[in-house]
Design a binder for these strands. Structure first.
Length: 280
DNA sequence: AACGCTGTCAACCGCCCTCGG
DNA sequence: GCCGAGGGCGGTTGACAGCGT
C-alpha cells in the first residue's frame, strides 16, 4: 500500500501566492502559532497543501526574515560552512540569522558554486551536489596528500576544518592535550560499519551520544563532555568551528605532520572551494 | 521593438526521519 | 516491532526580470 499523499491533487491550488492568501496564513499563524500545517487549509479555507503553507511561512512570511543582498561576511561564512557541512542548507541557514535555507541554497546554486568553480577551474574535483544522503555521505577516501600539477598539496587549516565531521574535534582539554582536535589514535580507532555487501567503512559517528560513548570507552572519563554544554551534536561542531574562526585558524597550527596523517577522509568540496587556503 | 540568453527566486516534488498509536 | 501521519529537507522546476544584440 502506497503512502497517502499529503493532499488531494487537483483540489489544491498551485503556483504563486496571492496577497490575500498571505494575509490569511499570517493571521492564522499569528493567532495560533506554527505547527499542525495540515490543519491550516481546513481551518482557514486556504486551498493550499499544508506543506505549501509551511514553506510559504518559513521562506517568505516569517517576520524575522532578512531581506536584501547577501553581505560579503555572510558569503564568506556560507562558503566556510558549506565546506564544513556540504549541502545541509538548513544547518547553514541556522548560522545566518534571518536567512532561509532556500535562500542560501539558491544563492549557492546561482552564484557561489559557479563562481568558485570558475575561480578554481577544478571541474574534475568531486562536488557533493549529487550525494544523496548528506547526513551520511559516502565521501571518497584519498590520502592526506594529493599530487596536482606537479605540486604537493598539504592540508591547511581550512581543509582540517572541512573534515570536522569526520575528525570529531574536541574542546581544549588537558586529558587529550591536543589543542582543538581529537587525538589521532582515537580517530584511527573509530568503530566501523558494515553494509549489506559486507563492505566495512569508518563510522561517521553522527550523533553526540555515539561520540560520547566512544570517548568514554577510550579515555575512561566523560569529563570532556560534562564540562561543556552542547545541546546538539551540530552545535558541538559549530562551537568548534567558531573557535577555530575566532582564533584565526591558529589553533590548527600546532599540528605536526604526524597529526595530519591522522586526518580522516577529506571533503573534496572544501578542496575546490577553498583552494587559496591550500599550501602548495 | 523583438528576441534570446542568463540570473534569480518562489514554489513544488519526493525522499527521509521521527514519533505516537 | 510495525505502520502511518506529520514534518523537515535537498533537489529541481518554472516564471519572471534584466540585459545584450
Amino acid at each position: 500500500m502506497g503512502r497517502r499523499p499529503c493532499c488531494q491533487k487537483g483540489e489544491m491550488k498551485k503556483g504563486a501566492w496571492t496577497a490575500l492568501e498571505d494575509k490569511i496564513l499570517t493571521d492564522y499563524i499569528t493567532a495560533y502559532g506554527e505547527g499542525k500545517w495540515r490543519t491550516i487549509p481546513k481551518q482557514t479555507g486556504l486551498k493550499r497543501c499544508g506543506k505549501s503553507c509551511r514553506l510559504r511561512w518559513l521562506n517568505y512570511l516569517r517576520p524575522d526574515i532578512k531581506r536584501g543582498n547577501i553581505t560579503p561576511d555572510e558569503e564568506d561564512l556560507i562558503i566556510r560552512l558549506h565546506g564544513l557541512l556540504g549541502n545541509r542548507w538548513s544547518l547553514i541557514a541556522g548560522r545566518l540569522p534571518g536567512r532561509t535555507d532556500n535562500e542560501i541554497k539558491n544563492y549557492w546554486n546561482c552564484c557561489l558554486a559557479k563562481r568558485i568553480r570558475k575561480e578554481n577551474n577544478r571541474e574534475h574535483i568531486y562536488l557533493p551536489n549529487k550525494v544523496k544522503n548528506t547526513k551520511n555521505p559516502k565521501i571518497p577516501t584519498p590520502g592526506p596528500e594529493l599530487e596536482e600539477n606537479g605540486h604537493r598539496l598539504v592540508p591547511s587549516p581550512a581543509v582540517a576544518a572541512a573534515s570536522l565531521q569526520l575528525l570529531l574535534p574536541l574542546p581544549k582539554d588537558p586529558i587529550l592535550n591536543s589543542g582543538s582536535v581529537m587525538n589521532g589514535d582515537i580517530v584511527n580507532d573509530l568503530p566501523t560499519l558494515e553494509d549489506e555487501s559486507g563492505n566495512v567503512s569508518s563510522s561517521p559517528l553522527t550523533s553526540r551520544d555515539d561520540l560520547s560513548s566512544h570517548i568514554v570507552a577510550e579515555t575512561g572519563t566523560s569529563d570532556i563532555f560534562d564540562s561543556v554544554d552542547f545541546s546538539t551534536f551540530d552545535d558541538f561542531l559549530f562551537k568548534q568551528f567558531d573557535s577555530v574562526i575566532e582564533a584565526g585558524w591558529s589553533s590548527w597550527e600546532s599540528f605536526e605532520e604526524a597529526d595530519i596523517s591522522h586526518f580522516g577522509p577529506v571533503d573534496y568540496a572544501a578542496l575546490s572551494y577553498a583552494s587559496d587556503q591550500w599550501i602548495i
